[in-house]
Design a protein around this nucleic acid. Structure first.
Lengths: 190, 190
DNA sequence: ACTGTAGGCCAACACCCGTTGACCTCCGCG
DNA sequence: CGCGGAGGTCAACGGGTGTTGGCCTACAGT
C-alpha cells in the first residue's frame, strides 16, 4: 500500500528532492493550495516528474504523511512522570519536522488526511495509553482526552500561532500541560 | 444581531439564502473546496448573484465568520464553578451552529480565517479571563491555555471526529475538561 | 397603460489545476 | 561505434474556478 521499496536508483536524488519540497509545501499551504506545479518548481524539476515517481498528487501526499510517533521506552518509567515525559516527547515531535503540522493542516479539510490522523491515533496513541490506564476498557477515551490537549496546544502554538501560546517556553508548556495529561491517563474516572 | 427579520426587499430572501448556504458549505468543505458555484446551487440562484450581493468570495466569507462567543454573566459566579460553566458554554456554542466549526476549519489553511480566530481570542476570550486570573498580567497566557484545551476538544470531537471523543456524552466531556480549565485560570503558576 | 428599475439568468473570459504523451539527451554497455 | 533505455523537458488537454457584463423579466410609481 504505502512505500514502494525499490532498491537504490540514480534518480533517488530527484525523488527525495520532490518529497522534501512536497513536505514543506503541504505543511505550509495545506493540500489544496499546495500545487504540483509549485512543488516541482521548488524541487527544480518538471511537474510531470512528480507524476512519474508518485503516480498522482494523492500518491505524493500519501508518501509525505508517513508518521511515527515513536514513543520512548515507557516500560520502566515512574508512572508519576508520565505526563512530563509524554508532553516533552510531543513537543519535540512537533518541532523536529513538519509532518505533524502537515497532517493537522490537511486532516482538517482533506478526508484522506483525517483518515490518516485517526489511524495514527488508533494504532499508536491508544496502544501506548493502554499500558498505563487503570482500566484498559477506557483506554480509547483517555487517549482521546490526551489527544485533545496535545493537538489543541499544537494548533494554537504552531498552526494558528496565537501570540501567548507561541511565546511560551517549552518548560512552561510542559509545566502547565503535564499535570493535565497525567490526570487524563492515570486519574480515577470522575 | 442576527434575527428573523421580515424582508423589506425581495432581495433579502436571496441574500440570506446565500449566507445560509455559504455557512454550511464553508463549515463542511473549508474555504478552498467550498466553491461559489456550489453555494449558489444550494441557494437556488446564479453564481453571479453572490458577486452582486457580497462582492467576492472573500467578502462572502467575511460575512459568514461573524462570531460572538457571548459569555454568560460570569460576574456573580462562584469562582470554583468557573471551569464547569465555561466548558458547558463552549460545548453549547460548538453544537448550536456551524460558525465556529467553519472558523476552525478555515483558520487552519486560510490566512484571513486565522486572523479572525486570533482576533476572537484577543478581544473576547482574553478579556473574559482577565477578570478571574490571580494576576492580570498573565491573562493572555492563561487564556491561551484554555483555548488550547477547548479548541483541541472541538477539533477531535467535531472536526476530525475521533470515535472515542465524538461518542463521549456532554456530561463526561464537562467532567473531564472542567478541572483542566479551572486550573488554567485560577491555579497558581507552576 | 407605460415605463424605469431592481432582481435574476446566461454565456463567456482569463486563469490555474492535475495529468498525459510525444519528444529530447545523455550514458553505460555490447 | 552503435544503441537502448533511463532521466528529464515541453506543450497541450480537459475541466473547474472566480468573476464580469450583457440581456431578459416582472413589478411599482406615475
Amino acid at each position: 500500500m504505502t512505500g514502494p521499496e525499490t532498491p537504490r536508483r540514480r534518480s533517488d536524488v530527484t525523488r527525495t528532492a520532490i518529497l522534501e519540497a512536497a513536505r514543506e509545501r503541504f505543511a505550509s499551504d495545506g493540500y489544496d493550495r499546495a500545487t504540483v506545479r509549485a512543488i516541482a518548481r521548488d524541487a527544480g524539476i518538471d511537474p510531470s516528474m512528480v507524476m512519474r515517481y508518485y503516480g498522482s498528487k494523492e500518491g505524493l501526499f500519501a508518501a509525505v504523511i508517513d508518521v511515527e510517533l515513536d514513543f520512548p521506552d515507557l516500560g520502566e518509567l515512574d508512572p508519576d512522570r508520565l505526563g512530563v515525559v509524554l508532553v516533552t516527547h510531543f513537543l519535540e515531535l512537533w518541532e523536529r519536522d513538519t509532518v505533524l503540522r502537515t497532517l493537522l493542516r490537511v486532516g482538517v479539510t482533506n478526508e484522506s488526511g483525517s483518515d490518516r490522523l485517526r489511524q495514527v491515533f488508533a494504532t499508536q496513541l491508544v496502544p501506548a495509553a493502554r499500558a498505563f490506564v487503570p482500566d484498559p476498557a477506557d483506554a480509547e477515551r483517555r487517549a482521546a482526552l490526551v489527544a485533545s490537549q496535545v493537538l489543541g496546544m499544537a494548533l494554537v502554538r504552531y498552526v494558528l500561532k496565537f501570540g501567548p501560546a507561541a511565546d511560551m517556553s517549552r518548560a512552561d508548556v510542559i509545566a502547565w500541560l503535564a499535570p493535565t495529561v497525567q490526570r487524563y491517563i492515570t486519574a480515577e474516572a470522575p
